[in-house]
Design a protein around this nucleic acid. Sequence first.
DNA 1: CTGAAAGCGCTTACAG
DNA 2: CTGAAAGCGCTTACAG
Lengths: 350, 350
Amino acid sequence: MAGGIPGRSVLRARPTMRDVAALAGVSLKTVSRVVNGVSSVDPQMTERVNAAAVKLGYRPNLTASNLRRLHRRPSTVGMLVENAANPFSSALMRAVENAAHERDVLVLFGSLDEDPIRERKLVSAFIDRRVDGLVIVPAGSDQSYLSTERDAGTCLVFLDRAPMLLDVDAVVSDNEGGASSAVAHLLGFGHRRIAYLGDRASIRTAAQRFAGYRRSLELAHIEMDDRLVRHGIHSIDAATSAAKRLLALPDPPSAIFASQNLVTIGVVRALSALHCHDQVALVGFDDFPQADMLCPGATVIAQQTEQMGRVAAERLFARLDGDQSPTEVVVLPTTLIQRGSGELTPSVDR
Amino acid sequence: MAGGIPGRSVLRARPTMRDVAALAGVSLKTVSRVVNGVSSVDPQMTERVNAAAVKLGYRPNLTASNLRRLHRRPSTVGMLVENAANPFSSALMRAVENAAHERDVLVLFGSLDEDPIRERKLVSAFIDRRVDGLVIVPAGSDQSYLSTERDAGTCLVFLDRAPMLLDVDAVVSDNEGGASSAVAHLLGFGHRRIAYLGDRASIRTAAQRFAGYRRSLELAHIEMDDRLVRHGIHSIDAATSAAKRLLALPDPPSAIFASQNLVTIGVVRALSALHCHDQVALVGFDDFPQADMLCPGATVIAQQTEQMGRVAAERLFARLDGDQSPTEVVVLPTTLIQRGSGELTPSVDR
DNA sequence: CTGAAAGCGCTTACAG
DNA sequence: CTGAAAGCGCTTACAG
């Protein structure tokens, strides 16, 4: 059978600058100059060095060069998200990757699963590998532990959720405004009994969206009915059963506001199962795949996901380039996308 | 205003082992022993060192320790996918991350967008950072350039698509078998004119799925009609228009096999737009989010995505642990999930 | 334009 | 059990 030996049985040692220098008959320092593209090298020597490098299959060791280097260009950044497998997180990751790629920077990622302990552990793991910067969608509610890292020179930008007890840049959506406009939209179609189904209130974005829900009810002089409010819903199945219970109430809601994409999907399932997807209105926060292909299409408050990731990355690279301006929290607006589920009027017979 | 100075204006230098040693009044080497958990250190000294490390906020520099270290435990692996924002890619990423996390290994990622040049550039970028291993969903059709890296000790595992011209481990789905069973399923419902809509035939998985399509037709003694075959479809929109053109033929297909999730979604849109989602049968390769919530639900050939990623990662870590067994291509079976769109019989009136 | 020496933060190999 | 010296692959700071 053809083919090499798998694993690392034949360890042909990787060539170093020293090997290239020996083959080219120059000093190690000259190789360093050529590899780093320093102009002041004799063209003939440059030629010899390049030829030797190619012949040996030389690849610079960035990890070693960064060790001694003072004014290092950024080479690697870390990114912490809620869950890499979730469309919102992965859209943010791709946006950050794109901005990083333009600068030849690579991205390390980690999923937090809403676990504050995991947040701290992964931050440490990134720091131990000396990443140049960190984009963080935090899980915990106290980021003061990061002040040491910030002062040690690690640039930080928070994304989707602003940091707590720490002064660094952040890029977030207008959660309260978006939620408020969702509820206002439902009110505009005549709904008075609007339920709130949301994630754990300890998650900052969930709290802000709940605040938006309350604000719109207050502006409409509608007293909030606690029986129509459910927090702590963190999965599709939990949302489905919560919605079913809501709709089994003696005086059920005529409309539902879902604070997050998994919750929205769970509610859609419940409405389908109960065959009332054409009676009970629904607006969800966060767009999600195939939302337009459902019957009816899901009306949502969409975040500018791609832009959030890009702006956060640009901010990080600006800091890495030496930007000393005051920290800033960028708030991006949301958009209401009407697709049918949010444009139903209250049924008379319910 | 409270808060520190942003950026890196106040660079309080990060403490080193030398600093910890000085504060604890021991040698650098003793600190190294404590940090690495070597048992043979006096408990009192260990105590002093730990106290000094905590007081200074010391964090080991993994990048520096790996430089001299001979038998390094893996600390970072790289992963190349088609597109981190696509659900298939991000599911694979999360699965690899999970396996890596159990070993305190971090994952660098990069999206290739089906670009072979980008594949080579990103592989080089990973190598330059001296990742311990690489999980690759390749874009190009020749991976022989990687043999040097493999021989230099970088462990490689291919995922979803086997490598070409290179002998390394791989984990793939049974693409031909899955596609074949999809078409067999449609034949079983009485369809004789079954269209194929697929991605570029130069993509290995697409070619294999097309082979499965042909095999099932041959087994049923149906001659393939070239007018019902469309390759090179790489986006939802392209799939929608291709499907519309197919259905406008004088003798349109009664069923469609879509070789990939984006194609399937595009076909669903076309069928909805033409109001024939209850007449034309559809089976797609790859499951996709909310496929069960459509009307009708989308019948698909599902890959074991999570398992593919996990098996690939386990294989990589086995190699990193010194496994010298012959290279292996693991082929995982697919599953047909019936949801309605694939269980329609040919309409008499078409 | 070129190179020999020292150093980045750590581990190895070797003494005590 | 503890430590001084050399070295990992590279850059810096300094001579020539």
